[in-house]
Design a protein around this nucleic acid. Sequence first.
RNA 1: GGGCGUGUGGCUGAGCAGCAAAGGCAACAGACUGUAAAUCUGUCGGGGUAACCCUUCGUAGGUGCAAGUCCUACCGCGCCCA
Length: 380
Amino acid sequence: MNFKILKKSSKSRARLGLLETSHGVVETPCLVPVATQAVVKTLESKEVEETKSQILISNTFHLHLKPGEKIVEKAGKIHKFMNWKRPLMTDSGGYQVFSLGFGTDYGLGSKILKKEQERGESIKINAQPQQIKIGEDGVEFRSPLNGDKIFIGPKESIKIQEKIGADIIFAFDECTPPLADHDYVKKSLEKTHRWAEICLKVKKSDQALFGIVQGSRFKDLRIESAKFIGSLNFDGFGIGGEFGNDKKEMGKMIEWVVDELPEKKPRHLLGVGYLEDMETIIKSGVDTFDCTVPTHYARRGIAFTSEGKLDMKKTIYLKKNEPLDKECVCNVCKNYKKDYICHLLKAGEITGMKLLTFHNLHYFNTFVEEIRNKIKRGEI
RNA sequence: GGGCGUGUGGCUGAGCAGCAAAGGCAACAGACUGUAAAUCUGUCGGGGUAACCCUUCGUAGGUGCAAGUCCUACCGCGCCCA
């Protein structure tokens, strides 16, 4: 993998780049659609290309459980397995440390604390989630599929990711929960840092390996983590964990980190990408970012349009014989109307979710494309 | 004509003396940011912020302190026998 910076904004930390891999080039800044189980749910790979998606991220934990990395490897590795010819990343499974752990215990999201939830900082040093066990060498999971005990640490994650064979792989980290206090995060960070060094040592493939910066909302820890991870011989960097109480803080927190990372290497923001967040995170210096929102919300019946977020399950849309977005040029907007899509969703037809997934991805990718153009024109 | 059965809130469907009445569906509202996620939450007879009040279980009477819940008649629907 090679990363070229084409232009640096004079108005912000934003930059235009080219991420070159053996499976093609990614123009950055770029949204990375999520293909957890080696598929963008509801779409086939050819359709995903048609949404202007340049690179996908799949998940180590999920592929380890099903079908198992050996199957993927035997199929000729993940590109051949899923017939995706462009670049691919795999996440390390670090997010599942959060999601299946404290995330489940407290009903939390990982990025921004929900309004209703008070900042109790109830997760203190040495706390353990109920269903998984976070140890020094890794994490003991229970398979959500059949209850089997599974152990994944940095070594295991890298070995699995090598077998899966994505272009870019991530170090195994602990994604700390928003309710964790400073002491918890500090101790967790030290572990994530040790794990980062192990990941670098263990990796034998020529895949690009990205280290992950944690540190939650704490400035000292974010900077400490960025300095440490940034000093290691990674090919790029992920920025993970939570970003404070509200979105205004998010950009600032990303900048704490970005300013400590080597400038020439790509920065990937893990799991952030509401439309309204995109300009902020890109202006803070993020090159790539993945987010489940366009695909996940599509399966909930939500269409993203220039008129805002539309809940296409609402009965009023049965009476609207017009495209989801009058300005959108995607195949769905060219060929289908709201009344039909609403009908499909109400009838429980999977094609409704498929059409929305296609449109949302196209819409998000076009949105980022426009931000790239703004950087080109020197507007942001 | 005779016998048996049935009639519940937008639909469906429990309840068989102490209910504004289970469940499901639909409807409406909300949530979802490195996907245990085609999911979850709330409302769902009317009125009031609320303790509370009012109107409901085919229709009309009756027996009970109390009736969708028991009795009688009628009406509608279903099946069976003539």
